[in-house]
Design a protein around this nucleic acid. Structure first.
Lengths: 243, 243
DNA sequence: TTTTATTGTATATTTTTTATACAATAATTT
DNA sequence: AAATTATTGTATAAAAAATATACAATAAAA
């Protein structure tokens, strides 16, 4: 990742990504822990090159973080409160960066001017098959891991609010856009589909009616049965049909 | 309106407003004609001060243009294609501004540097009672007028796309947010409500069922009857109840 | 062969949506 | 003053969708 101090980015604009995965009957969010004393976590983020489409920038950032080439994402909101990045936090962060990048370019404090200013952040959410993701740490991160949506770590600034807004948007999109299947592997059982929908919406569904509803969407094709080894009937596998 | 060349704005970010009104059974959009040869129209727009909430900036811009203090608005999308402002168009526009603002600050071409760069535009849509609006022309405008959503003039850049996106968003919001009443005066008949809903959605509704649906929302209070002078029963007036 | 757990399918019930009929009203016409 | 007309408000019937319930099919274990 290139240093953000270079000037071919659009200034004072960042992209924050809420990367949703699914496992253990819960939505998961991929979150890096930033290398900064105080144990803080920040959403995967990046900047927009001067000659780059904003959607392309989001795809690029997500590719860098997940290793996935073709990723499903939706822009959902711009966060632009004047005081969204508290001054104290930024001061500390710059000091920390100063230590790390000191040799390279610490001579001019003005290089960091753009960073002390207020940022507008464009929020994107992504839906990925958690098994396909190989989380990529940057040199600003201490770690990058999946966290259950209801077990989030302490986020910087307004990043928890951004996650909550992403979730609300996903919940409202789930019916109209039929995008929840992006959270699942290529093949899956009907039960898994139901559990994903329940994890997203926070509601439970009656199995038989849920199946009828999903099949009426006419987007699934049924494959062979799945051998589970359990003492019961094997469920059919389904695949999302993209035309 | 202050000159955009001053540096206390967030650079390369603008706010574009789609101001919806309603009259003559059609959605109307308030659009200024820019003072620029070639007959071009541009959405009312503005910039964000460094210490200003982005929502506040949108409110400020709308106040400047409509004269209305408290206005209903929703942020709906960021437009950030790299080539969204064609170079040729901008070159012409700058030349034109150069003529107009020549005396003041034409000495330094660099003052206009920020303007030649690509902009990210945050789209907001507003809903207003068209009778309460007193359209305000700025010194960059030749005129500012209402246009039927289906009779738009030739818009610059991607502004027609922005209007279409605003309409799509409004259409999807109309049921969940119950905001269509912002387009009507304080009191109105049921028929007017229906016509507004039809103008927004592009669909027609059966009168009796529509009335039942609206009343079931439980947001209207019924007032006196309205004397029309016509040879028929006078309709009841309703008022939107804000609690 | 019986039991068990779970899936797939059918059907009944309830709720919501849509369609239709008609009474109430107020100004105009006769 | 009574009949006519246009439009609103209300009730009800029909259709569709959503929800609840029952049960058959399956495959492995007991």
């Amino acid at each position: 990742m290139k240093s953000p101090s270079q000037q071919n980015y659009i200034p004072q604009v960042s992209i924050d990504c809420v990367i949703f995965g699914y496992s253990e009957q819960q939505l998961q969010v991929l979150i890096p822990k930033i290398n900064f004393k105080g144990d803080f976590w920040a959403l995967p983020s990046g900047f927009v090159f001067q000659d780059e489409d904003i959607d392309d920038a989001a795809h690029r950032i997500l590719r860098e973080r997940t290793g996935i080439e073709s990723i499903y994402l939706e822009q959902f909101k711009v966060f632009g409160r004047a005081n969204r990045s508290s001054k104290e936090f930024l001061d500390k962060l710059i000091q920390q960066n100063f230590d790390k990048l000191g040799e390279k370019s610490a001579s001019h404090t003005t290089e960091y001017d753009w960073f002390t200013k207020r940022f507008l952040s464009v929020g994107y959410y992504a839906l990925v098959d958690i098994n396909k993701v190989i989380p990529q740490k940057t040199d600003l991160d201490e770690s990058i891991e999946w966290y259950g949506i209801h077990d989030l770590p302490q986020m910087i600034m307004d990043h928890e609010e951004i996650i909550n807004e992403a979730l609300k948007t996903l919940q409202s999109h789930i019916d109209e856009k039929i995008n929840a299947f992006n959270l699942l592997p290529d093949t899956f059982t009907m039960k898994e589909v139901q559990e994903v929908y329940e994890a997203i919406s926070g509601k439970t569904f009656v199995r038989t009616n849920f199946q009828k509803m999903i099949l009426s969407l006419d987007v699934l094709e049924r494959l062979e049965k799945k051998f589970t080894g359990a003492a019961n009937k094997a469920p059919y596998l389904y695949r999302f049909r993209k035309e």
